[in-house]
Amino acid sequence: MDLFGETNNWVTNLAPILEKYKGRKHPLEYKNLYQLVVMVVLSAQDSDANVNAISPSLFEIFPNMKRLASSNVENLIPHISKVRNFATKANWLIEIAQTIQEEKNIPLAMETLTALKGIGRKSSNVIMREAGVPPEGIIADLHVIRVTPRIGLIPETQDGIKVEKLLMQILPKTIWGEIGMAFSFLGREICRPKPKCEECPINTICTYYKINKLN
């Protein structure tokens, strides 16, 4: 599906947001790969801001994967109790830590990341993007799920896996590593539930803008 010509035109159409957001660090305020993995797990169905708020004290107690692996769910829960589904996430994190043991063993491939409890494709794509490894998919968070149908890139769906699959079919792999976060940042800052269309760098190719702002 391509509403604006050949599929490859999307690279040109999306160039303004790729340029605007390329290389920008994820909003999770992590300091190393271990912290990123933990925070990505904690942020599922919760806000990055909330996870950022509880993380400094969490990492004072659990500064590395080895320390987390030597602990248990009961000790971890008090430090993440302000996060949604904290009990389930505590179990996931302890299992991840005990499986990996040390930071050097953190996997950086889709198959091995998604084999870990609590880490799906979206989380894996975030970890791989932030680690700078070649992408195997496209980040499809709630912002991407909102933005991509709105601009006319894909049909509307709330299924993140379907969104990713559709985007991977349409967009060339050369931009997979950055385009997901570009859409996400656009959704956080401009293409919000109530969009700021006049500020959008890609409003000229946006279906929503054409229908709602130009008519």
Rank of each mutant, 00 (worst) to 15 (best):
D2I: 10
G5H: 07
W10G: 02
T12F: 10
A15E: 11
G23N: 07
R24W: 13
E29D: 13
Y30H: 11
N32S: 09
N32P: 05
Q35T: 07
Q35I: 03
Q35L: 08
M39Q: 08
Q45N: 11
A53G: 10
S55I: 02
S57D: 14
F59Q: 05
E60F: 06
N64K: 09
M65N: 04
R67D: 13
L68F: 02
A69V: 12
A69H: 07
S71H: 10
H79F: 15
K82R: 15
V83A: 14
N91T: 15
W92T: 01
L93E: 00
I96T: 02
A97M: 07
Q98T: 07
I100T: 06
K104T: 09
K104Y: 05
N105Y: 12
P107C: 11
L108Y: 06
A109T: 15
K117W: 04
S123E: 11
E130D: 12
A131H: 11
G137Y: 04
I139Q: 02
G152T: 07
L153R: 02
D159W: 09
K162W: 06
E164V: 09
L171A: 08
L171E: 05
K173A: 14
T174H: 09
F183A: 04
F183N: 03
F183E: 04
E189Y: 09
I190G: 04
C191I: 07
R192D: 07
P195I: 05
P195L: 07
K196I: 12
C197E: 11
K210L: 12
K213D: 08
N215T: 12
